[in-house]
Design a binder for these strands. Structure first.
Length: 313
DNA sequence: GTTCTAGAAC
DNA sequence: GTTCTAGAAC
């Protein structure tokens, strides 16, 4: 009897052996190394018929499993023969089935070399635009000849794009330049309303000088920080509800947004934008580093907060 | 930072 | 059934 293997065309893991008439459930997990949340942990149920040389695949997950360009559909079962390609989910994670004889019969080899029997029911966008990239070829050299390379998973670039202008983390730099957002400005700082206020009053004080993060602060910034603090205090003084609300001024220890910014926030936390634990914790725990009276000059005691230089204000 | 969503947890 | 959570995308 021949032996059936499920072979990852991405070469992302070793072939998985399918025993004759034994059901195997596969999906997201260590066996396939698929981490894509769109892929269920139990995405497919596979069963090999080693005598007849095919497997059946039943789609268990919600998102589509394909055999070539045909969606299996949840709850449905179809066959996969050598030459056909099984995509675990969303036309990604391509697999082939391979039957190898442990005897010397040539049938398996003949089967393997058969051209794809896939019906050309491809939609017009089909595979015409899919160009095999040179980077693909190195790992492809064992693949059977085929005119349709699998959809290429495009890995996110290794380069850090978070510093590029359009990235979400650069949003404050855009907002602070927008006159409609500004509620105060002078020659050193600008104040804007937080776009997603976590309380009834929530301002951000930003220096015009580009200081990407607290880690970039140096002693020469002390006067600027003091000025930011003074401007923050002025915001309270002009606030009509200041007398009945408590305020805190401070920095997030590990902010998501680039460009140093001082939060000036009332302590009512009455806001539809305060939606989860992370929001709450970011203003009510040590993650919120109060600016006034805070003194650190080295990382020592505050290494967890990733602050290099902090000063008495 | 927010939003969206699948799957887990309840 | 609803809520929570963790990732991914932006």
């Amino acid at each position: 009897m021949s032996v059936c293997s499920l072979v990852s065309e991405d070469d992302s893991h070793k072939p998985i052996q399918l025993h004759h008439q034994h059901s195997v459930t596969l999906g997201r997990g260590p066996e396939t190394k698929i981490k894509d949340k769109k892929c269920s942990r139990e995405q497919v149920e596979l069963r090999a018929d080693c005598n007849r040389g095919f497997i059946t695949v039943k789609q268990l997950g919600v998102n589509p499993t394909n055999v070539d360009d045909v969606v299996v559909g949840k709850g449905n079962r179809v066959t996969v023969k050598p030459g056909q390609r099984l995509y675990m989910v969303n036309q990604q994670y391509p697999y082939r089935v391979r039957f190898t004889e442990d005897t010397s019969t040539p049938r398996s080899a003949a089967e393997l070399s058969k051209p794809s029997k896939r019906a050309h029911r491809m939609s017009s966008e089909g595979n015409a635009e899919k160009i095999k990239s040179p980077a693909n070829t190195a790992s492809d050299h064992h693949r059977m000849s085929d005119d349709s390379p699998p959809p290429k998973k495009i890995p996110s670039s290794g380069s850090d794009k978070s510093e590029s202008a359009g990235h979400w983390s650069q949003g404050l730099k855009v907002s602070m330049q927008d006159p409609k957002m500004q509620v105060y400005k002078d020659d050193r700082v600008v104040v804007i309303k937080d776009k997603y206020p976590k309380a009834r009053y929530h301002w951000l004080v930003l220096p015009w000088d580009s200081i990407s993060s607290l880690k970039a602060l140096r002693l020469e910034h002390v006067e600027l920080l003091k000025h930011m603090q003074r401007v923050g205090d002025q915001m309270l003084q002009q606030c009509p509800d200041a007398h009945k609300l408590r305020f805190r001024l401070g920095y997030h220890a590990i902010p998501s947004m680039s460009h140093v910014h001082l939060h000036v926030i009332s302590q009512d936390f009455d806001s539809p934008c305060l939606k989860n634990k992370k929001h709450w914790n970011s203003f009510t725990t040590d993650y919120f580093v109060e600016s006034q009276g805070t003194l650190y000059t080295k990382t020592a005691g505050y290494s967890k907060l990733q602050i290099n230089v902090f000063v008495v204000l």
